[in-house]
Amino acid sequence: MPTTHDSAAVTAVLDSLVAAWNRHDADAYGRLFTEDATYATYVGTLYQGRQDITESHRVLFTTFLKDTLLADEVVGVRFLGPDTAVVTGRGDTYKGSRPRRLGKVQTYTLVREADGEWRIAAFQNTKRRPLTEAVSFRFAPGLVPAAGRA
């Protein structure tokens, strides 16, 4: 049965992910993923495996995402068993001041590996479209998720 310690260990992985991003340390970033992890970006690119994730971020940190910081907010942690956790959250990259609203919705699947460490086995990043959401919620209020009514 997962413990409070497990919840803290899972969120610590995400804290380490943010810290690695903010240092633009592709190697540290990649080590937080399992060897066979999958990583789906908000533009639809799918990276497979720790090496692919690491190398893509090595390039991103020197090009499109140079000098960016990562903001991350955990919305919920759910354990599917003693060694598997699903984390939902919001995140975004930024320069300068942290954005008030984070523009991406993210899902992480973490597993506890044989060495006892939690690592990310799958990541999905989806860009929010607030205007599209607002219009669809206005014309079809039943589409508003229960968690989004607050």
Rank of each mutant, 00 (worst) to 15 (best):
Q106S: 00
K95D: 01
S136V: 07
E133G: 09
L32S: 02
T126V: 13
N22C: 11
P82G: 12
N125K: 06
T45L: 11
V111H: 15
A121E: 03
Y108R: 04
F33G: 01
V18Q: 14
A121L: 07
F64M: 10
D115I: 10
F64I: 05
I53E: 00
V10G: 09
G148H: 13
Y29I: 03
Q106I: 05
L143N: 14
V75Y: 00
A140C: 14
L69R: 06
L14Y: 07
Y108P: 04
T107P: 05
R112I: 06
L14N: 06
L17E: 06
V105E: 01
W118N: 00
L102E: 02
T63H: 12
S56G: 11
A20Q: 08
L131N: 03
W21Q: 00
T126I: 03
G142Y: 04
R58V: 08
E113L: 09
D27P: 04
R100S: 13
L14S: 05
T4S: 12
S16C: 13
F79M: 04
Q106Y: 00
G103V: 03
L69K: 11
P99Q: 04
R138E: 12
A146N: 01
Y47Q: 07
S7K: 15
A146G: 05
E133M: 14
D67A: 11
L46Y: 01
A28T: 03
S97M: 09
L102Q: 07
R112Y: 09
D25N: 00
H24V: 01
S136I: 10
G103L: 09
A146E: 11
H5W: 07
G44S: 10
T41H: 12
P141S: 12
L17K: 03
L65R: 03
R101S: 10
G103D: 04
R100M: 09
A85N: 10
W118D: 06
H57S: 08
Y29A: 02
G81D: 10
V74G: 03
G81Q: 02
V13C: 13
D27W: 03
R58S: 14
T107G: 00
T62A: 15
P145S: 02
E35K: 05
V86G: 09
L69W: 02
E55T: 14
L70Q: 02
Y47I: 02
E117W: 03
K66R: 15
E133D: 15
L65N: 07
E117P: 04
T34Q: 08
F33M: 05
R90L: 00
S136N: 09
F33S: 06
N22D: 15
L14M: 11
A28K: 06
R101D: 08
D15F: 05
R129L: 14
S136K: 01
V77Q: 10
T132H: 13
E73I: 08
A20C: 00
A12T: 12
Y47E: 06
L143M: 15
R98I: 09
R100L: 12
